[in-house]
Computed example of a mutant assay.
Amino acid sequence: MNNPLQNSTSWSDTLKIRKDHLNALLKTIDARPGKTSQIQTLTINAIKAEMVHIEGQLNRRK
């Protein structure tokens, strides 16, 4: 049988940690106006979309 982990974090905490991680990723991507490649732009847009999704989930949990 599957026993729950004793020191597991709540789902809200997991989402907050994920959001912080995505923020750190955005800071590491060197996005200067006029110097971003198409892949960087797509990556930045995907990270921002994921952050919006996480915000929505966190707002629903309040």
Rank of each mutant, 00 (worst) to 15 (best):
L15I: 05
R18M: 06
N3T: 12
L26I: 09
N2A: 13
S10L: 06
Q6R: 10
P4G: 05
A49R: 13
L26W: 02
I47S: 01
P33H: 10
M51P: 00
I54S: 00
N59T: 12
W11H: 14
I29W: 01
L26K: 03
D30I: 10
K35H: 11
R61E: 10
Q40V: 03
R32S: 12
L42E: 15
S8H: 03
T43V: 13
A31G: 03
D13R: 03
E50G: 01
N59F: 12
T28N: 05
L5V: 08
I39C: 03
I17Y: 11
K35D: 12
H21T: 11
D30M: 06
Q38R: 11
I54K: 01
N3Y: 11
N2S: 10
A24L: 08
N23W: 02
T28D: 06
Q40N: 09
V52G: 03
A46D: 15
A46Y: 06
K27A: 11
L26S: 04
E55I: 01
T43P: 00
N2K: 11
Q57G: 04
T9E: 13
L22W: 01
N3C: 07
R61P: 01
K16F: 02
T43C: 06
A49T: 14
I54P: 00
A31P: 03
N3V: 13
K16P: 00
L5I: 09
L22M: 05
E55G: 00
Q6P: 00
G34A: 07
L26Y: 03
L15R: 03
